[in-house]
Simulated scan of single mutants.
Amino acid sequence: MQVSRRDALRYAATLSGIAGLGAAAASGSAAAAGRPTLIDYAMRQIPAQDIRAAGHAGVINYVSTSRPGSSFGAKPITLPYARSLNAAGLVIVSNYQYGKPGGTAPSDFTRGYAGGVDDARTGWHHHIAAGGGRSAPIFFSVDDDIDRQAWLNTVLPWFRGINSVIGVQRTGIYGGIKACQWAAADGVIGRSGSPGHVWAWQTRSWSNGQIYPAAVLYQRIIDTASNPGPVVGGIRVDVNDVLAQDCGQWNFHP
C-alpha cells in the first residue's frame, strides 16, 4: 500500500497526539502497557476528564442500542458526549454489538446476510448521528469462540451483508485471533492507513496468547467478575492497546 508524504505526516501527527496523552499521564494506569490505550465500556458515559486522568488516549464506543431488558448508558454514543470527548483531545473508535451469547438477543452474527444488512444500517446511522467520520470503520463484534465451519456458514455471510451496505473499507471486526485472520483472508474487512494493518480489533479471549500482527487494536484487559478491570469514572472498563497509528479513530477519517 503506497502512502503519500501528506498521509505519512498525518499518521505521525495522530500518533503523536495519542502518545502525548499517555506521556502526560505517565503515572496513570495506561502507562503500564507502554502503548497508547483506549477503553471500552457500556454501563454509562464516563466523563472525558476522568478518562484523561486515568492516562487513556480515548475510547471505543458503541454505535448500537441496548439489548431487550437492559439499559446501557453508553449505548449508543451520542453527539454531545462525542463532542465532550473531542474537546478533551480524546479519540473515538466505533464498535457495533447488540446481541450477546446467552443474552436477551442472540449474537449478531447468527442472523446471517440479512442480519448484517440491518446491523450495518443501524450502526452507520448511530455513527453518523454522533459525528463519526464518514470514512471511519465500524468494528462489528464476533464475541464468541467460533470455529471454521461457523465462520464459513454463518459469520462470513453476516459480514457480506455488512459490506453490501457500508463497503469493505468501512468494515472492521472484533474477535479472537482466528476470526480476525479469517476476516482478512476472505476480504470482508478494510485496510488501515498504517501499512500492514487491517481493521481487526483483537480480543485476548480465544487467542491463546498470540497477537495478530495486522491488528490495529488489542483488548488486553477484559473486565469480568473474577478478574475485574480498572475503575475509570466509577465503573470498571476494558483496556485496549493501540497497535497502529491509524486504528480507525474518527478524527483521522473525516
Rank of each mutant, 00 (worst) to 15 (best):
residue 1 M to T: 09
residue 1 M to P: 01
residue 2 Q to C: 00
residue 2 Q to G: 15
residue 5 R to K: 14
residue 5 R to C: 07
residue 5 R to V: 13
residue 6 R to S: 13
residue 6 R to A: 15
residue 7 D to E: 15
residue 8 A to S: 14
residue 8 A to W: 00
residue 9 L to R: 15
residue 12 A to T: 11
residue 12 A to S: 14
residue 12 A to I: 10
residue 13 A to F: 05
residue 14 T to S: 13
residue 15 L to M: 14
residue 17 G to W: 06
residue 19 A to G: 00
residue 21 L to W: 02
residue 26 A to N: 08
residue 27 S to A: 13
residue 28 G to K: 08
residue 30 A to E: 05
residue 35 R to A: 07
residue 40 D to I: 02
residue 44 R to I: 01
residue 45 Q to H: 08
residue 45 Q to D: 11
residue 47 P to Y: 02
residue 51 I to W: 04
residue 52 R to S: 12
residue 54 A to S: 14
residue 55 G to D: 00
residue 55 G to S: 08
residue 56 H to I: 00
residue 56 H to G: 02
residue 57 A to C: 12
residue 58 G to D: 07
residue 60 I to W: 03
residue 61 N to H: 05
residue 65 T to H: 05
residue 65 T to E: 08
residue 65 T to A: 08
residue 66 S to W: 10
residue 69 G to L: 06
residue 72 F to D: 14
residue 74 A to N: 13
residue 76 P to Y: 04
residue 81 Y to H: 15
residue 81 Y to T: 01
residue 81 Y to D: 08
residue 82 A to V: 03
residue 85 L to G: 07
residue 85 L to C: 09
residue 87 A to T: 02
residue 88 A to S: 09
residue 89 G to M: 09
residue 89 G to C: 11
residue 96 Y to G: 03
residue 98 Y to N: 03
residue 100 K to R: 14
residue 100 K to I: 11
residue 103 G to K: 11
residue 104 T to Q: 14
residue 104 T to P: 12
residue 105 A to W: 13
residue 107 S to E: 14
residue 108 D to R: 11
residue 108 D to K: 06
residue 108 D to S: 12
residue 109 F to C: 00
residue 109 F to G: 01
residue 110 T to R: 13
residue 113 Y to P: 00
residue 118 D to S: 15
residue 118 D to L: 13
residue 118 D to P: 03
residue 122 T to V: 12
residue 126 H to D: 10
residue 128 I to T: 14
residue 130 A to I: 03
residue 132 G to I: 02
residue 132 G to F: 11
residue 133 G to W: 06
residue 136 A to V: 05
residue 136 A to E: 09
residue 140 F to R: 01
residue 141 S to G: 01
residue 141 S to M: 06
residue 143 D to P: 03
residue 146 I to L: 09
residue 147 D to V: 11
residue 147 D to L: 10
residue 147 D to W: 05
residue 149 Q to Y: 06
residue 150 A to T: 15
residue 153 N to S: 15
residue 155 V to Y: 00
residue 159 F to I: 01
residue 161 G to N: 04
residue 166 I to W: 01
residue 166 I to F: 03
residue 169 Q to D: 14
residue 169 Q to V: 03
residue 171 T to Y: 06
residue 182 W to I: 05
residue 187 G to L: 10
residue 188 V to C: 04
residue 188 V to D: 02
residue 190 G to K: 14
residue 195 P to Q: 04
residue 197 H to E: 08
residue 198 V to R: 12
residue 200 A to Y: 05
residue 200 A to N: 11
residue 203 T to W: 00
residue 205 S to V: 07
residue 207 S to V: 06
residue 208 N to C: 03
residue 208 N to S: 14
residue 212 Y to N: 04
residue 220 R to H: 11
residue 220 R to E: 09
residue 220 R to V: 07
residue 221 I to C: 00
residue 222 I to E: 13
residue 223 D to T: 08
residue 227 N to F: 05
residue 228 P to N: 08
residue 229 G to V: 01
residue 235 I to N: 04
residue 236 R to H: 13
residue 238 D to E: 09
residue 239 V to Q: 08
residue 243 L to F: 08
residue 244 A to G: 01
residue 245 Q to H: 07
residue 249 Q to L: 06
residue 249 Q to W: 10
residue 251 N to M: 10
residue 251 N to A: 13
